[in-house]
Write a protein that binds this DNA or RNA. Structure first.
Lengths: 196, 196
DNA sequence: CATAAGTCGTACGTCTGTGTACGACTTTCA
DNA sequence: TGAAAGTCGTACACAGACGTACGACTTATG
């Protein structure tokens, strides 16, 4: 179960693949309809080289999505989970919002070419991590329980996605994003306080 | 300044156009990449008839978007604006969520083919209505003022969009949507209460 | 009912993007 | 250093979608 595939690859090829996947993430992150040619050029690589490693566009999109989600998993895994659920959530958002922002368009690209099941499968690991945290917050009484858990997890994603778009449109400044997202999500999840 | 264009059109044509625009809204609402052919067939009309009324796909998309937003304007205009801003907002969400849900994909279709300025222009009327309401709520002390107004307005849209997607994915039931959306938006906008 | 308006099929040219074939060149690495 | 692996340009076949041209048919409306 090592990460290296059975095939031996030249260092050369390894480097190309890395550049291609990275370019795919960036390019598809900006435009879900980007062509194979766009991606190859963004990677500084000939189209033929690309096809040498990924036989179809769908395969490429899948690799890009998998890579982005793997990166997400890494970031999430590095977050300190001890302490108040609210604070953990804040740390988590702080360190992951930009990654999510760059991946939303990539996700829609994937939805066009990959079966829904495959996407869910890839997406599950990071989603579960968030879900667990929210559930723990609920158990501790810090988060609300009057809305479906799946919705609470989902809405975090949609807020991040929205923040990314507002950022792109110039209506949110780069430095504002983290605080805005945190405040918003905190408000959504907070257990209702009875008003005077 | 009447709504009837200078050209006289036959009742026949009028009906076709209505069916086409309606089909465009529905079809593009499901798949932003739907082809002209898809839309024509959904409208029960020949492709040539469609091209007789809309010279390019972009023109058709624009008409569909304009129609959806005009419908939105109507719905918003019909909402009772008197009373507590929180309650007004609840009424507003109640009556508009499904329409927004059906229009989000249409909006992304428009983003692919129309200049950003044109979209903003069409989108402005309904957006302003919501913005005014939020501002009023802020003035009355009912809504928070520590986040940008544009964000508060925008995030409502993103939550609605998210709810629509959760609905489509079967994670939210039709009857749950309104209440879920209302509770979520209420939590986001509520002026922070100091905790004991 | 006659004419103008509208419908609609078929066919065509074009453009864009995908994926393949071939072949020459360059880099790795044993 | 030489064979295998990788790079990459050009060219091609193919498919899907757009938009146009033509012409026959049908329907509204004066």
């Amino acid at each position: 179960m090592s990460t290296t595939a059975p095939r031996r690859r030249r260092a050369d090829a390894e480097r190309s693949i890395a550049r291609i996947v990275s370019a795919a993430r960036a390019t598809l992150g900006r435009d879900p309809n980007a062509s194979v040619d766009d991606i190859a050029r963004a990677a500084g690589v000939g189209r033929m080289t690309l096809y040498g490693h990924f036989r179809t566009r769908a395969e490429l999109v899948e690799a890009a999505l998998a890579d982005a989600l793997r990166a997400g998993e890494e970031v999430l895994a590095a977050v300190d989970l001890t302490g108040d659920a609210r604070e953990v959530l804040a740390r988590l958002l702080e360190s992951s919002w930009s990654l999510v922002a760059e991946s939303t368009a990539l996700l829609t690209a994937a939805q066009d070419v990959l079966p829904a099941g495959r996407i869910r499968q890839l997406h599950d690991a990071p989603a579960n991590r968030v879900e667990e945290l929210v559930r723990r917050g609920q158990d501790e009484g810090a988060f609300r329980t009057d809305l479906p858990l799946s919705w609470l997890v989902g809405v975090i994603h949609y807020v991040l996605q929205g923040a990314a778009e507002e950022r792109r449109a110039g209506r949110l400044k780069e430095e504002e994003v983290a605080a805005t997202v945190t405040a918003t999500v905190k408000a959504i999840l907070a257990a209702p306080v009875r008003k005077g």
